[in-house]
């Protein structure tokens, strides 16, 4: 799956002109795109020095913070959208950060590697932890400390009374809406807080 495909998939879910907080924004690519083509504003949050420098170079506003310290810096409902693009799996406090996401914003868009993807299942059946383009690490050096499946995340959202506005998978350059828990390498969730339920 290309970075461009992920970027446009995300952008399609972000209302035009949104104020966005991108948690673990990496080199600022997604935010730069949202600013240029989607009229968005806001900040990225990043811990890595090289990524912070890359953001500043792109003129993407970035705040260097360790997400494990929480989001106390940000006020309730002060953003339209919080993005967690492949960030969740690195967070020790993943559940807290999920709740915090919907505290500071009306909408959360969360993507993460789906460990129940058929290839990963096959790999584990063969007796080895999966190593794939999406999960390129060995078990002993992986930064992914919170490994979850599409179905696991649905359960966590329910437990926290979050409303799943949309949920689907991505695989190669395609959106996966049929059996994403097995057929998608990446899970995508669009959440709103319980009080914002629109259905």
């Amino acid at each position: 799956m290309s970075a461009d495909f992920l970027k446009t998939t995300i952008a399609n879910m972000v209302p035009y002109g949104s104020r966005v907080l991108d948690l673990g924004c990496g080199d600022g690519e997604v935010l730069a795109y949202l600013q240029k083509s989607h009229g968005c504003s806001g900040y990225g949050v990043e811990i890595d020095d090289d990524n912070v420098a890359a953001c500043v170079k792109k003129d993407v506003q970035v705040i260097q913070l360790n997400l494990e310290q929480g989001l106390q810096m940000f006020e309730d409902q002060s953003f339209d959208v919080v993005l967690q693009i492949d960030t969740l799996q690195h967070l020790r406090n993943a559940e807290t950060m999920l709740r915090e996401t919907l505290r500071v914003a009306r909408m959360g868009i969360i993507t993460f590697p789906n460990f129940a993807h058929w290839f990963n299942r096959w790999s584990v059946l063969k007796g080895r932890m999966p190593v794939t383009p999406k999960l390129p690490y060995e078990w002993y050096d992986t930064p992914n400390i919170r490994v979850a499946t599409f179905a696991d995340f649905q359960a966590l959202a329910l437990k926290n009374h979050l409303h799943i506005q949309d949920a689907f998978g991505l695989d190669a350059e395609k959106t996966v809406r049929f059996w994403p828990n097995a057929l998608a390498s990446t899970a995508v969730f669009q959440l709103t807080g319980a009080s914002q339920r629109t259905t």
């Binding site: 912070v52 953001c55 506003q61 705040i63 002060s78």
Partner: peptide, 16 residues
Amino acid sequence: VQALVANKRRLSYAEI
């Protein structure tokens, strides 16, 4: 940073 963010001001912050 927090006060500027609360005022929705443009900023970047690096903690070296």
